[in-house]
Amino acid sequence: MDVLSQLLGSGVAVGMIYAVIAFGYQLTFATSRTLNFGQGEALMLGALVGLSLVGHMNYWLMLPIVMLFGAVQGAVVERVAVRPAIKSKSEFGWIMATIALGIIFKNVAENIWGHDQLPFPSPVSQTPFTVLGVHMVPMQVMVIGGALLMMLAVELFNRRSIYGKAFVATASDLDAAGLMGINTNLVITFSYALSSMTAAFAGVLVAPITLAGAEMGAVLGLKAFAVAIIGGLNSGVGVIVGGLILGIAETTTAYYISTGYKDVPGLVLLLLVLAVKPAGLFGKTVIKKV
């Protein structure tokens, strides 16, 4: 029981990280029907930049700087890898180009920070405590809270401000949004900036738990994609539930079977969901008009 509740605690924390990265996928997919295949690398860069900064400044000052860095990085990805491909209507183009940028970012990170996994200081105490019978580490609570807060902030922006509404309008109908005088290209760039910003933020959150290193992004990015698919690429609740399912499935697999297999359930779930209900558990199936 004790073990199970610990597994639950860490599963929820990991799941929320997946949810927040998956949320990033949703943002860019909504505006441009494209995904950043280097999303995991955005997270990794966020963590490593954060690591370099945190030695020189207060943790809470570092956070906004990392987020700003993430936003700029996302905008670069959009301008270099996505926009030309959207213009030439080449799906192959943006898939390959975002992968290529991901590889470059990773290689650059290896050259700057080395190949090792580096410890990341935790801003909160390490002593575990118990909430409702579940053992938690304060960092896990911070991860869960931070992830929820981030998603909430973006949602509020979308619902309350006219620019958020322009974002929603672009997501639902690109051409019509253009007719409303909305600079849809800018909105797409903005969605990439937001997306990478959430990923960088997630990187800083997760790093104290997983260690930070150039390798950390790849699998996280893939599993977050699984979460986005399981939850549905157009469902906000979906990513949170999907994240939780995956996070808990993973920690229990790691404990009861082998840590070597911990990535398997998420990926198998991804394949199953895509084979059975491609719109995701919470997504709406859309009939394609011919």
Binding site: I162, K165, A166, V168, A169, S172, D173, D175, A176, A177, L179, M180, G181, I182
Partner: peptide, 20 residues
């Protein structure tokens, strides 16, 4: 081509977006 996930008022306000 109205924006289905936005309210009627929000749709109309977006119509005035170029005036911002």
């Amino acid at each position: 081509r109205v924006f289905p996930t936005l309210s009627v008022t929000d749709n109309l306000r977006l119509g005035a977006y170029p005036r911002l």
